[in-house]
Amino acid sequence: MTTIQKTLKGLWSLIVGLKVTGKEFCKPWITVHYPRQEVTNLESYRGHIDLVPRPDEPKKPLCIVCKRCEEVCPSGCIRVEGHVPGEQTGEARQLLLISNVPLPNSAARDPICAADKTLRVLDGFTLNYNYCSLCGLCVQCCPVSSLTFSSDVYLAGGSRRDFEYDLLRRLKNRKIKV
């Protein structure tokens, strides 16, 4: 008796399966027909990293040149260059570059203040996107939240050089939203 019951139940499940796919067949597509349509939630896309501008000076980054992102990057694809204005040279300059670095998130409440306190000036921030694995460690460890993911999804290029980004220049060339 149980065998027959099980069989009938199994047969019914086949019909239920057909009902499910039959219903889906009649519904409209849920895929986006790309060249003709585009997705609307690009903000949530986590592309390559980008520098965050200061709220008061949109052409300047929040970066304090602590070089943590450069150190933490497992692929070694970030290069940060900075200098200290003034006349310090040699060992003193090096010291200035290392000290005075706040802990992650300690200055998050007032990043502008942190950027003002540190004396260093960012000269260059290059990202070699060819090697980036998009792990996001640099974004996590930035003490002043100066890094974010861009929503740059339309990437195509003919050479490797096309994916070596100068993020500082990107920031300076960025159009300011009014």
Partner: peptide, 13 residues
Amino acid sequence: KVAGFIQRRPGPF
């Protein structure tokens, strides 16, 4: 096309 519609995509287009 049937495969596409059941999986709610356009199929060959």
